[in-house]
């Protein structure tokens, strides 16, 4: 059976990296057959959701400045529909974890994530959020935000360039596009689980930042 590939206006499908992960994801989601009407509705809803991803203004360090650059005139993520950054977690669709997460910040971040309304996504921006980055050996740094939240997309870099952030956002768009909103196939989430298994689109780099250990 031919798989339906998510179409993004900005970059052709073949030019994306890591298509295998996405295809595996599509295969898994399409295991059971879907009603035509429900499928069409899904497509419509997904089109809307993927083109209107409002992020929470959340930044702990350097990556936050690059995130602001993405919002400013030169990179302007409003073009893709990421127009509005909401300051209230209730109204945000995704949380950009831009920067190091420390032990003191971890419960705050978890609470912020819990405060967000479903459907919600997590993007780990920068080496620190992915693995602890250059601060990996520290006593007060959480080595990777995936220890406390399910991460959807990893954007490596220290800090990632604005282009990388845009690319990561598009990866997230593609992921949203293949999801099934109706029928509850997408998220078998048990509210009692502390964390659910993340579906990862971009591969996490082994070490996000320049290596500080020889």
């Amino acid at each position: 059976m031919e798989m339906k590939k998510p179409y993004i206006k900005s970059i052709p499908y073949e030019e994306f990296k890591d298509n295998e992960t996405l295809e595996a994801l599509i295969k898994e989601l399409n295991k059971e057959r879907t009603n035509v009407v429900v499928g069409a509705l899904d497509d419509l809803i997904n089109w809307g959701r993927s083109n209107s991803l409002w992020s929470l203004t959340f930044a702990t360090s350097c990556c936050g400045i690059e995130f602001m650059s993405v919002g400013a005139a030169r990179y302007d993520f409003a073009r893709f529909g990421f127009e509005v950054t909401r300051n209230s977690p209730r109204q945000a669709d995704l949380i950009m974890v831009a920067g190091t997460i420390t032990h003191k910040m971890a419960p705050v971040l978890k609470r912020l994530y819990d405060q967000m309304a479903e459907p919600k996504y997590v993007v780990a921006v920068g080496g620190c959020a992915i693995s602890g980055g250059p601060f990996k050996g520290s006593y007060h740094v959480v080595n990777g935000v995936d220890k406390i939240l399910p991460v959807d997309v990893y954007i490596p870099g220290c800090p990632p360039r604005p282009e990388a952030i845009l690319y990561g956002m598009m990866q997230l768009q593609r992921k949203v596009k293949v999801e099934k909103f109706f029928g509850d196939k997408n998220r078998h989430q048990n509210p009692r689980d502390v964390r659910r298994e993340p579906i990862i689109v971009t591969n996490a780099p082994i070490d996000g930042c320049e290596k500080t250990d020889k």
Binding site: K9, N51, A73, D76, A78, R79, G81, E83
Partner: peptide
């Protein structure tokens, strides 16, 4: 000095 929504 931006262009606003363009791709949708």
């Amino acid at each position: 000095c931006r262009v606003g929504p363009m791709r949708v």
